[in-house]
Simulated scan of single mutants.
Amino acid sequence: MTILLIVIAIAFWLLGRLRDYTTQDHQLPSEGLVNLEEMLRKGDISEEEFRTIQSSTRSQVASSTSTKSQSVRSPEPSSDSSEG
């Protein structure tokens, strides 16, 4: 039983390390836009592809920003605890 608990603890630790490692690899949306503009200048993508990717990126950023702002809100303090 203790061996199983140790294996589970190690698995959680490894998954946590892997998760931290992969979250550091994400680009900021502004960096991605700069890369897109460079690809457009080089001719790697067309103007239509650029606009399509740009609009989808903006919509993803807007949805993730609204989700984050909703989850960051703290609950309002309850007035029930001030009863004397």
Rank of each mutant, 00 (worst) to 15 (best):
S69M: 13
Q54S: 09
E47F: 08
E76N: 06
R51D: 03
I8F: 13
P75T: 08
Q24K: 14
S30W: 01
E38G: 05
G84V: 09
L15P: 01
L5P: 02
Q27R: 10
R73P: 01
Q27D: 05
L15M: 13
L28M: 12
S55A: 10
S59L: 12
W13H: 10
T52P: 01
S81E: 05
A62F: 08
D25F: 12
S78V: 05
L33N: 04
I6W: 07
G16W: 10
A11C: 07
S74P: 00
Q27I: 00
L33R: 15
F12R: 08
T65L: 06
E37L: 09
T22W: 10
K42G: 06
L14F: 11
S59V: 08
L18R: 15
D20C: 03
S64A: 06
I45E: 07
N35G: 04
Q60H: 11
N35M: 09
L14H: 05
Q24S: 08
I53V: 10
E47P: 14
I53H: 01
L40G: 00
N35H: 11
P29N: 00
L5W: 14
S66R: 09
E76H: 06
F50V: 01
G32Q: 10
W13D: 05
S82P: 00
G84Y: 11
T67M: 07
V72Q: 08
Q24M: 04
T23G: 02
T57P: 00
T67D: 11
K68I: 01
